[in-house]
Every structure is written in structure tokens, then in C-alpha cells.
Write a protein that binds this DNA or RNA. Structure first.
Lengths: 190, 190
DNA sequence: CGCCGAGTTGAACTGAATCAAGAAACGTGG
DNA sequence: CCACGTTTCTTGATTCAGTTCAACTCGGCG
């Protein structure tokens, strides 16, 4: 069983085996090498990708600075949801931090899932609300927490990530400089 | 035609008149007086409300401080989406800033819409992605902008709000103190 | 080896918070 | 409709969290 199947089962509860198979077979295995791009800013994000193994980073470039919005490790999706659904150019660039295996589905195939799997709409809704909730929490963290508190919260929930990706990407995603990140980190290690 | 009908038409494009009527009749008119609560933190948010007129503020209380997450004015929805969909206790409190007219639908009735209006799933999806995108933009604003830039961006898109609600609520929602808000405001008015 | 990106550390600086006080606007009860 | 208390908003002085700039270390890789 692939991670993708496990993901769907664990997040969406009981789905008929046949439905599960139908969904999964619409996703195609692809790989992307370290440094390569899954999406470039300004392009339409025409696929939804699930990370089987590896790491992707989604970021925007502002005045020569890269702002990391999201890091997708195995078990996460990577896409510009807004671009994918509304078929508009993306603000984001998605790049592989290491060689990465993906299950990708094109927008075209994605639209078909609903026809094959009636329950899909419900699953999709749950997925979207989950994404919404994650962002809601992040907004809240910026309204009510210090850099240190954001660090701790993220660290508790994503310990593994800290030995997998360059830390300045995490710093950027948490809205602080690498220096601040480093100082907080030192403090927490004592 | 109510604002709710207009909202659905303008945001979701052509919907059959019958479908529109079906959806709208499931929403019940209610009013809520200044200071009253639509939702209290810890309770399950069992309805989705559309603001016909008035103002609602969604906030959480942390260490005696209120953190404003969202202000719903006419033409916006007010709900804890996560609580509403997953039927879990809410972190948020929603309070009326002035006497407010709502169109509200219960979770129970909400579930039925799909049966009556086949196209509903598609509309719902677009709605959710729109909500997602708004939050994504807010996260990005905290990762890449100063308080002043956030102020300006929000002001450009929400001028009307500035003469409708106490400004310290807007300040809180933008992640700054009332004092900082006031100083930036003074600067921009010159 | 030498280079380059990642991470650390220190010192100076600054945007924004905090603290405090006063002015203006508001709404509530008489 | 006025008076009074409360909330909102402003302004100034001070403090502090986090940024910036710069220098240095370390480890991996060509």
C-alpha cells in the first residue's frame, strides 16, 4: 500500500476499497530531482502532487528575498491550491530540496474523480477545510505569539523536519530571520 | 433580491434560478443585538451565517487579551468553518458589534443542500478555496510585510470598514497594537 | 585542497510594544 | 436633551524583541 492510500484512509476514514483504488490510479508516479521545479511563479499550477518521499519547498520571491510559505515532506501535498482550482497564474514557486518521488494528478483527471467516486466531494471538502484550518492556526500564531513561541509550537509538531531541511527555510516559514532562529534554537537546546 | 442571493450569483456565476431559491430558502433570517454572541469559545459552531447588515467580530481570548481574527460586515459569512464542518468545539467567539441581520443555516439543513442542488458541491468547493486563499494571503503578509505595509494593503481593500468598527479591532486583526495602528494612520492621512 | 552554503555569534540598530496620560467620541440613564 | 462614565483614539517616552550587518566556523562536495 502506498503512502497516498494510507493518507486517504487515515484522513478520510472508511472509503470503499474500490473507490480508493480508483482515486489512486488516477495519480501518476513521477520523480523530480534536487533543485528542479514543480511549479514556477507566474505559471498555472496544473497538477496536485502528493509527496511519497523527499522534500519540496514552496516560496515567493520579493525584492530578491525568498519567502518560504510551505515545506512539503512525505505524506503532504504540494500545490498552489488557488491556482490549481481557479486556474490562475501562481504567485509561488515549488522546488525540490532533494530528489523527490511524487504521485501527481492533472487538473483534467482531478475533475473526473467526482464522476467515478460519488463520495469524493465529501472527501475533498474535508481536505480543503483541513488546509484552511492549518492556515487559520498560522495566522493566529502571528497575531498572538512571539518568534520563540512560534518556534516551539512548530518544533513540537515537526521535529523530524529539523534534521531534513536547511533551517533558514523553516525560519522563513515561521516569519523570522535565520539569526533569530539560531538564537532561539540555542536557547531551547540547553 | 437579498444580499445573499446577490452574493451567490456574483461569486459562483450562473446558477439556475430554482437552485438559487432552494438554497436561499434554507437560510433563515435572524437578528442579533449589539453585544450579543453568535458563538462562544468552546461551543460547537452549529450554523453558518451570512451578514445581511451589521457587523460581527470573531476573536479568541488569550491571557486576558482579545485577538481579533476576522470582522464580518455585510456580504460576508461568519462561522468557525473548522468547527462547523468537523463538529468540534470552537476556539473562537463571535460577537455582534452592532445590531446585525443574518441569514443563518443550521448544519443539519446545510447538509441537505447537496441533495437538492447537485451543483452545490462545486460551489462549496469554490467557496472553501476562496477562504483558503484569503488566509494564505494573510500568512504571506506576516512573512513579508511590515505593520505599515499590512495596514496599507488592508486599507486599500477595506476602506469602508475604517469608519464602521473601533479601530483597535482592525489593529488586532492586522497583528499590531492600537498605538502602532494610530501612528501609521496619522502618517497616511497627511 | 579550496570553495560555497549553512549555521553561529556579536554588536549596533530599529520597528513595534509597552507604559502612561490626556483628549475626543459615544451611549445610557436620568 | 443633557450629564456623566466609559470606551476609543492619540501622543510621548521608554523598552525590548527581532533585524541587520559583519565576521567567523564548520562540513560537504567538486
Amino acid at each position: 500500500m502506498t503512502e497516498l492510500e494510507q493518507y486517504i484512509k487515515s484522513y478520510f476514514g472508511i472509503v470503499a476499497i474500490d473507490d480508493l483504488k480508483t482515486i489512486v490510479t488516477l495519480f501518476k508516479t513521477t520523480t523530480i530531482k534536487r533543485g528542479e521545479f514543480l511549479l514556477k511563479s507566474g505559471k498555472y499550477c496544473n497538477k496536485l502532487s502528493f509527496v511519497q518521499s523527499g522534500l519540496l519547498r514552496m516560496f515567493a520571491t520579493i525584492d530578491d528575498k525568498e519567502v518560504t510559505q510551505w515545506i512539503s515532506t512525505n505524506g503532504y501535498f504540494a500545490t498552489d491550491l488557488s491556482s490549481f482550482i481557479f486556474e490562475k497564474p501562481s504567485r509561488w514557486t515549488i522546488q525540490a530540496l532533494v530528489d523527490t518521488e511524487l504521485y501527481s494528478i492533472t487538473k483534467e483527471d482531478y475533475k473526473k474523480i467526482g464522476n467515478f467516486v460519488p463520495k469524493w466531494n465529501e472527501l475533498e471538502k474535508l481536505f480543503l477545510v483541513r488546509c484552511f484550518t492549518i492556515l487559520e492556526d498560522r495566522v493566529f500564531s502571528h497575531l498572538s505569539m512571539t518568534a520563540e513561541e512560534r518556534y516551539n509550537l512548530f518544533f513540537e509538531n515537526n521535529k523530524e523536519l529539523f534534521n531534513q531541511v536547511p533551517l533558514h527555510y523553516i525560519a522563513s516559514m515561521l516569519g523570522m530571520t535565520p539569526e533569530t532562529f539560531s538564537r532561539i534554537r540555542k536557547k531551547q537546546l540547553l
